[in-house]
Design a protein around this nucleic acid. Structure first.
Lengths: 333, 333
DNA sequence: TTTAGCAATTAATCTGTTTGACTGCTAAAC
DNA sequence: GTTTAGCAGTCAAACAGATTAATTGCTAAA
């Protein structure tokens, strides 16, 4: 792969991303700084095809990038600083909104990305079971109901309602708060488990009727599949690839299935922007889509993962640039 | 409209709902108990068309019900007890799941309806500002954060996080709990407002720095657009009307816009199953869809509205039957 | 090594034809 | 008076062939 081939590949990919039409040798002459005749480009294209970076749909058609082509483009060729001053200004203003909850920040970030990139954007909260408990409290609502609230060191708040068949009094609530905090503060969330149940049961004289539902609900709350955020599902339908009904149907199917979305957001490395192109995706239902994700953090604390999903013909440069900027910005410049 | 015409109209509509194809005079002979030749049915169809209950797409095509036709069918002709024993059994088992929160019940009901009817199902929580406060409490998390929790008499729980620039101590929290409960218990949610702020400010010596954020967040929490639940968005794409890309795009557009969904769920009468057929919908974007909603209640307490959305060719009989049954079941037989 | 020029290929578009499913109407049957 | 058989008329959908336009690969010249 000499330099000229890479330049031509880049031109093909960028032209295809812009036009969504197979790229002919003639269409990139005099664009992208290529001072070559269409015949020469044709010769180079034939070789690029031989090594699998581009593909033809039929004998006389223009070329379309393959997953392998996009991969090279993403790894070596694209401009990852493709972001305008206006966009930076807009993102800044959005991210500086004062929020009281991590959830809100995630929501804002998700919708901002969707607005700027025009792609469907997804987000999921962080895996909580590795986080540490910073505070755990119970609060009585009415006579037979408790709300359990857990604050983790990442600032995530988990809450759950617990109903009882008998009345609860304030003294009991206070004891619960005392015991749970003493026993669990600073420990990882997953420590809320059976052993504790036995401990409470042997150290307090509450009936199992009270303790059982508490433990059940707390465990449910922390193991709860995190909430999934979705912004701009309709944006996909403006793209020409969604003219195909199959594609559209597949897309809705994917974003409608929480497990698939959770899966795709939960793979990938912590400190990177992760790009999965077409058939690089493990899940067969995703093989026509590309997905770009990153874990967003605030002062190095995991806040979850945000990702965009779109056709393989995606503006990788723009998306990656925006994510890079936001990631940096969230983590404090 | 004599009886025979109604029978024929019913036959046309039910055949169309089943097949999604324009209904010819021949296709309903010997079905639906009609012992007439196709010629007679043709004559009747011509008259039904003249009064606007059915329509032709071109001279030699079969007939398709109009919105007016569906309306008559829904009001007078359909079987609203179109529900099988298996379905009843399934619904029962689902609704008997023990839940700790209203939210959960809404989720379960929504997904059950979607599973049984095969239509996209939407839900929204009740308008909270008319509900009464049953309990209102603050709980300290860490040193500079409060969680405010409001329980209403319908069992709805609203919570909000409040951050401060200075430390909060337990004594302050206790006073807050005392004052808010004393002042607001039994009152409608909308009473949480400016006058209270002044009262607290004059009766306690907390700085405005503490009280301001509390009032702000509480107001935000109660005025928050209720969460919208969505189940089975992908189900729509199995229907033949969604072969049309325009239709599909419109559909996604509608369910993606929270305001439209909130609007369509918030119209309609409290004690009824509300049916909006095609152009009966006020919103232009909904004119190709039909919507059926009902307010679900538990022991006469408003729990919000559940609705399904689909093409005008919808199985009104099944949907209405299922909703009737569920509505009755939730409200305690 | 590059390029001009040209035959070959193919999808997309267009055009005309056939087919099949209906209807509406007429006249006969009930 | 009502119902029905039968048939001409209509139209969309399916099909088949011809045309067009885009683009390639290859050859031979620059």
């Amino acid at each position: 792969m000499d330099d000229r081939k890479k330049k031509i590949l880049q031109a093909i990919i960028e032209e295809y991303i812009n036009t969504a039409e197979p790229v002919s040798s003639g269409s990139i002459v005099n664009k992208y700084g290529l001072k070559l005749s269409s015949a020469t480009i044709r010769n180079e294209m034939a070789e690029l095809e031989k090594v699998g970076y581009i593909e033809k749909q039929h004998t006389s058609s223009g070329r379309v990038p393959s997953a392998k082509g996009y991969r090279l483009y993403v790894d070596e060729l694209l401009n990852d600083n493709n972001i305008s001053l206006e966009e930076i200004k807009y993102i800044k203003s959005k991210l500086e909104t004062r929020v009281n909850e991590i959830e809100e920040l995630t929501k804002i970030t998700t919708s901002t990305i969707s607005e700027i990139t025009h792609y469907t954007t997804l987000a999921i909260g962080p895996k909580t079971n590795l986080q540490n408990i910073e505070d755990i409290k119970f609060i009585r609502l009415g006579t037979r109901m408790l709300m359990g609230v857990i604050l983790t060191d990442s600032g995530i708040v988990k809450e759950t309602m617990i109903k009882f068949d008998e009345d609860i009094n304030d003294e009991q609530v206070e004891t619960l708060n005392f015991i749970f905090n003493n026993k669990l503060k600073g420990k990882p969330l997953e420590e809320i488990d059976k052993p504790l149940e036995k401990y409470i049961f042997s150290h307090m004289n509450y009936s199992l009727k009270v303790i059982k539902p508490i433990m059940e609900q707390l465990n449910k709350a922390i193991n709860d599949e995190s909430k999934i955020y979705l912004e701009g599902a309709n944006k996909a339908f403006d793209l020409p690839e969604f003219k195909s009904l199959d594609m559209a149907k597949n897309f809705i199917n994917v974003i409608d299935q929480k497990e698939i979305v959770a899966d795709l957001l939960n793979t990938g490395f912590a400190n990177d922007i992760n790009v999965y192109i077409g058939n690089e995706n493990e899940n067969d239902q995703l093989k026509d889509f590309s997905i770009i994700t990153f874990k967003h953090k605030y002062k190095n604390k995991d806040l979850g993962t945000i990702g965009i999903i779109g056709p393989t013909r995606m503006d990788y440069s723009k998306v990656i640039s925006v994510m890079k900027y936001i990631s940096k910005k969230l983590n404090g410049e």
